[in-house]
Design a protein around this nucleic acid. Structure first.
Length: 285
DNA sequence: CGTTCAACCTGGGCGC
DNA sequence: TGCGCCCAGGTTGAAC
């Protein structure tokens, strides 16, 4: 589920935990796959216990919790990648069964930080400065979707033969856009998701970047999209509201709100794409 | 090199 | 009711 707006909402929802000390660390054993945890639970517990949450950052679709004081490895960050169903929570989790991490905190008012993940595709890593750069640095992630420019997109994608929707999901090109927002951004930009990147002009890239910034900012303001309960909630267990603004995502067969034509669903690189065949420009039409 | 695909998981919904 | 299949907001490494 979570894309940039949802992950940013999670970040904001736990940012107030800054200054609190971690008093206990648990990774409910049977629910955690070994790959999802780096390093292993015992080492993680040893290195997290007693440290303080300094700042909560976001890099694309990842939350990075910076810890104080530095340990033998120098600065460190607890980097959480929710993937499809991961949630950072201060509220009660939907079920106990898929609770993957529980950090006890030195506070009456905010006693814990939880990571809950039904499908278990999410990852939790404790990284040093070098690890953070490798996982979240500019070699790995393009400019953040909230402030991406037309020039930045064009620079990275102008020679690509990929369909523009597929390219917008490439985190190296632009960070934070996923399947929902790729569809909504291209509708707002008025561009057909099947258009090859190499066919887009400077002006079209500008339209896409402008649409990306405004759609993502509005989605952050509305605290993300909750399509079904239990796949996305804010840290304090409220639903997002941006799903009410969706123009194409999940609306196959329903009339376009702009022109009335039926919204289409196609599949691109194994993922659903939604668009309006009338409102979204294609060079061959 | 660029691009696509199967795999990682659980669970809800649908047709038979 | 139950079974099998398809679907889901993401990422990765292997294969083309």
């Amino acid at each position: 589920m979570p894309e940039l707006p949802e992950v940013e909402t999670m970040r904001r929802g736990i940012a107030h935990l800054a200054g609190l000390r971690i008093t206990s660390v648990a990774f409910p054993r049977h629910t955690v796959r070994p790959i999802s945890l780096q390093p292993a639970a015992e080492s993680m517990q040893e290195r997290l216990t007693g440290r303080t949450i300094a700042t909560v950052h976001r890099f694309g679709k990842r939350v990075a919790i910076e810890l104080d004081p530095h340990d033998q490895a120098g600065r460190s960050w607890l980097v959480i990648e929710p993937r499809m169903t991961g949630l950072l929570l201060v509220a009660d989790p939907p079920t106990q069964a898929h609770l993957r991490m529980s950090l006890g905190l030195d506070s009456q008012q905010h006693p814990r930080l939880l990571f809950w993940d039904r499908r278990g595709l999410g990852t939790i890593r404790l990284l040093d400065e070098q690890g953070l750069a490798a996982a979240c640095g500019p070699d790995r992630l393009g400019p953040d979707g909230l402030d991406v420019t037309g020039d930045a997109l064009r620079e990275r994608l102008k020679k690509s033969r990929r369909a523009v929707k597929v390219a917008l999901l490439d985190q190296q090109a632009v960070a934070g856009i996923g399947n929902i927002y790729a569809a909504e951004i291209l509708f707002a930009a008025g561009i057909d998701p099947r258009v090859p990147c190499s066919r887009l002009t400077v002006a079209r890239w500008e339209q896409i970047a402008t649409a990306a910034r405004s759609i993502l900012a509005e989605a952050v303001r509305l605290e993300g999209s909750t399509i079904t309960d239990e796949t996305y909630k804010t840290a304090d267990n409220r639903s997002g509201q941006f799903q009410l603004q969706h123009r194409v995502y999940g609306r196959e067969g329903t009339p376009c709100r702009q022109c009335g034509m039926a919204i289409r669903r196609i599949v691109q690189t194994q993922r659903a794409t939604f668009f309006c065949p009338q409102c979204q420009w294609h060079p061959r039409r």
